[in-house]
Design a protein around this nucleic acid. Structure first.
Length: 464
RNA sequence: GGUGCUGUAGCCAAGUGGUAAGGCAGAGGUCUGCAAAACCUCUAUGCGCCAGUUCAAAUCUGGCCAGCACCUCCA
């Protein structure tokens, strides 16, 4: 498949170092609050990428970190009067609840920064030993950005331009601690009341960027295949990761970089100050997790995506069409006696179109179009199809929907005996043309949560 | 100031040179005791605006208009 590589700004064939094995690192959340729907975008998009690679028969080692030591965590914990550890643990749990709800597979490893202090100090030592890092007089350790000649290769920014064009860089960061304004912290000396660890530089804690460099190296090796995250992380976070890792390891950090576009509200970036902030939990309680997941797949992952409540309603309706189709396939297999195998060819066509779409830089929009084309064919041909064709069509449906991680919540529970009896009673009433009684039974079934639809093959129950 | 992105039907959104996918909403029809679901038909002579290149442009070039993002810890 081809993916758009931020490094080269071109679509490239996605080739792993070891054939059939992909090593992927995705920047995860800082666990100081519930995640918002913008955070959900990389979670879902890169989960789909992983599922697709696995569908193609590859092994994927997928690492997504948990940032559980950070300025925001320290500040929020202080405000709430709880320990940073308990705050982080709480919101890590909430994060996994949302992750599961969104249907994102658990990563191969979800490493926590605080459990990798030794690895972080190892990589800092490598950086300092090679002359790329230095200890400031207060015990901070900084990285010499300008010493790394490739600095800016990912964001395509030039340090000199940054400095001349950006006033804040000069005024606010002209601290005497740094040799140069462009330098960034890899280790921060402990301040009063903050969590800290022992280090060769005194008590302190890791900087933000260094944890990803350290955890990627530990769990995926010195050179990884793909590094992913939101587009806002390109600079400075990912640029700094590259600088740290490539200087410490002496080899390329990641061959490919993928970045998802923003999810906006009213065409504006979400932010707490603008009061246009939605958590995943909020949206899920109104529309369900699956509608949110579907929504995130309705635009190409690199495009901005604008959230409005109406769109989630439309997504629920679209999902409903998919569920109905899938039920139709089962119903036809159980009740119809067709002989046609025409659906088999349609299933092949659908898979072909689906793969063409996904191969082209994860075009989930066209992949969905392929699925909906297949839905129409299934609905049209179900009643005349052979049981074998219906089984295979259902399997193809499940495979394609499974790659996208949707239509995963079909009710498998059996129908209670009293409901079956009511359906039979209604059929009898209809035979006797007792429409009033038939409608009364239909109302009764509705109260029990079942809709009954009459088809040429007999009554069909739909659980609501 | 630097670096990028976006503008396609009522709404969302694919489509990077060959004559506008798909979903939602809407209209008509078929089926049905009535419904529901499904299916069929319809809904952009036009893709922000103006020029240009070409046999051919939503797609390439130039200009303009509008909106958005990043530029030191925000996915």
């Amino acid at each position: 498949m081809q993916i758009f590589n931020t490094l080269t700004r071109k679509k490239e064939e996605f080739i792993p170092q070891v054939p059939g094995e992909y090593r992927i690192y995705v920047c995860g959340p800082t666990v100081y609050n519930f995640i918002h729907i913008g955070n959900a975008r990389p979670v879902v998009v890169f989960d789909v990428l992983r599922r697709y690679l696995e569908y193609l028969g590859n092994k994927v080692c997928y690492v997504s970190n948990i940032t559980d030591i950070d300025d925001k965590l320290i500040r929020t914990a202080a405000e709430q009067g709880v320990s940073m550890q308990s705050l982080a643990q709480r919101y890590e749990n909430e994060y996994f609840t949302d992750l599961d709800g969104l249907g994102a597979k658990r990563a191969t490893v979800h490493p926590r920064a605080t459990e990798h202090i030794a690895e972080i100090l190892d990589i800092i030592r490598d950086i300092v030993d090679k002359g790329y890092g230095y200890v400031a007089k207060n015990g901070d350790v900084y990285f010499r950005a300008k010493k790394f000649k490739d600095y800016g290769k990912l964001s395509h920014l030039v340090l000199e331009d940054l400095e001349s064009g950006n006033r804040t860089l000069r005024s606010e960061l002209a601290e005497e601690l740094k040799e140069d304004p462009a330098d960034f912290a890899v280790w921060k000396a402990a301040k009063q009341g903050e969590p800290y660890w022992d280090s060769p530089y005194g008590h302190g804690r890791p900087g933000w960027h260094i944890e990803c460099s350290a955890m990627a190296r530990k769990h995926l090796g010195k050179t990884i295949d793909l590094h992913c995250g939101g587009e806002d992380l390109i600079f400075p976070h990912h640029e700094n990761e590259i600088a740290q890792s490539e200087c410490a390891n002496g080899c390329e950090f990641a061959h490919y970089w993928m970045h998802n576009g923003f999810l906006n509200i009213d065409n504006q970036k979400m932010s707490k100050s603008k009061n246009n902030f939605f958590t995943v939990r909020d949206i899920a309680s109104h529309y369900g997790y699956e509608a949110l997941r579907y929504f995130l797949l309705t635009a190409h992952y690199r495009s901005p995506l604008n959230y409005t409540p109406d769109l989630l309603d439309a997504c629920k309706a679209a999902l409903e069409r998919l569920y109905t189709c899938r039920d139709n396939l089962d119903f036809a297999r159980e009740n119809a006696a067709g002989t046609s195998d025409a659906l088999l060819a349609k299933a092949q066509e659908a898979e072909q179109k689906f793969r063409t779409a996904m191969d082209d830089d994860l075009n989930t929009v066209n992949a969905l179009a392929a699925l909906f084309d297949f839905v129409r064919e299934c609905n049209t041909l179900a009643a005349s199809s052979s049981p074998a064709a219906l089984v295979q069509a259902a399997a193809m449906f499940d495979t394609l929907a499974g790659v996208l991680g949707i239509v995963q919540h079909r009710e498998k529970s059996g129908v209670p005996a009293d409901v079956t009896e009511l359906v039979q009673a209604r059929t009898d009433a209809k035979k006797a043309k007792d429409w009033a009684r038939a409608d009364a039974i239909r109302d009764e079934l509705a109260q029990k949560g079942y809709a009954v639809e009459d088809t040429p093959q007999g009554p069909k129950l739909v659980k609501k």
